[in-house]
Design a protein around this nucleic acid. Sequence first.
DNA 1: TAGATTGTTAATCGATTAACAATC
DNA 2: TAGATTGTTAATCGATTAACAATC
Lengths: 218, 218
Amino acid sequence: MRKIRKFSAPEPSMRRLPAYLHVLTRLLRENRLYVSCTFISNELYLDPTQVRKDLALTGIVGKPRVGYSVEELIDKIKAFLGWDVQRNAFLVGVGNLGTALLGYQRFRLYGLNIVTAFDKDPRRIGKTIFGVDVLHVDKMTNLALRNKIDIGIITVGEDAAQEVADLMVQGFIKGIWNFAPKTLIVPDDVIVENAQLSVSLGVLTSKMKLSQTEKNMV
Amino acid sequence: MRKIRKFSAPEPSMRRLPAYLHVLTRLLRENRLYVSCTFISNELYLDPTQVRKDLALTGIVGKPRVGYSVEELIDKIKAFLGWDVQRNAFLVGVGNLGTALLGYQRFRLYGLNIVTAFDKDPRRIGKTIFGVDVLHVDKMTNLALRNKIDIGIITVGEDAAQEVADLMVQGFIKGIWNFAPKTLIVPDDVIVENAQLSVSLGVLTSKMKLSQTEKNMV
DNA sequence: TAGATTGTTAATCGATTAACAATC
DNA sequence: TAGATTGTTAATCGATTAACAATC
């Protein structure tokens, strides 16, 4: 196995932080100034020590007996997740899922700015979907080189996914968000995050199957 | 913390299995009869022992020097993930994401059958989207009780998510696939799988931030 | 002050990886 | 048979949880 030096924080922690942000945003709306780990852990059914460690990763310092400043904590978590800067993205594959992502307003909260979409289907090219133009995928690499594009979103089928990833790498895109059910091969300095729906569904249906077995066992 | 007796398999393993299935499906198309752990681990950049342990979870028995039967392995993994049976699902929230899920043909491969969709927006009610009728969400609970519905898919906003989950629980739905950015509170016998896009995006942008820091450090 | 909460160190738990015997 | 591969046990690694001192 290729060993990669690990600078990055524990992934389980990274995955919990967005949920903290949801709670904190609500508290901010309610004008709460401070929050304790215990409060967050109760809201999310997590261990309070785990919450404390996760928060410590962001560099925040709390006040004993008082807790953490809600506002400061929101800022620190956003910075930790890299949501404090705007990132320009290209999306390739304007099918159902791609279209849904183009219309997902919430991405603005995370600094994700999808500037252009691409496809190879002539029926889709030339359209404007949720204010985003759809161009032929052949134009993607050059456009990525000219405008600095941070993130490439892959919402094509599994057959085209590697091809699209290659074009993104050529366009010096350093982060790929891959929704295609395919393991991508990219250089070491390119980060791939997989977001296959099947993975999540598999966890659900696998656990459901097990809970049926449990019932039979009782 | 509430301790839950754990029957279910390690979640990391469950999350890797769909990727194995992709490789195996390709091999099946290529008419390969047998496959070794080493082959799969090379394809997916995983440790071969890890692959072997994951496969062992499915109950498959391999032949030394030969490997595992591709066809049998596919069946075993599908059974393990609970993808060997059809499950009826209701989807609530016919926004962009909900619509995309209704049109996602691949779900059939996983046994997921979305039978009806729901919303509370009168402009959406009465429509048929990708062959699925959209009804008012008030009708959901009763319909779930009358037809046996296994899975509820929540694609509403965070404000309505808990409310929708409550209705699903009342309708005896035992598995909830939650795309809303909200931690749901449900009885112990209901399984919730969260599939927030923000979690995946957060991992990507957090790692990208770190790799920029690395560059500055060099 | 007393006590709630943070921050940190130690212990436990679970997942990954290494080593190796069994097998065909 | 020799050797590739499985299956399993042991070692390591990392994440979670417990314990407790520091703080305001």
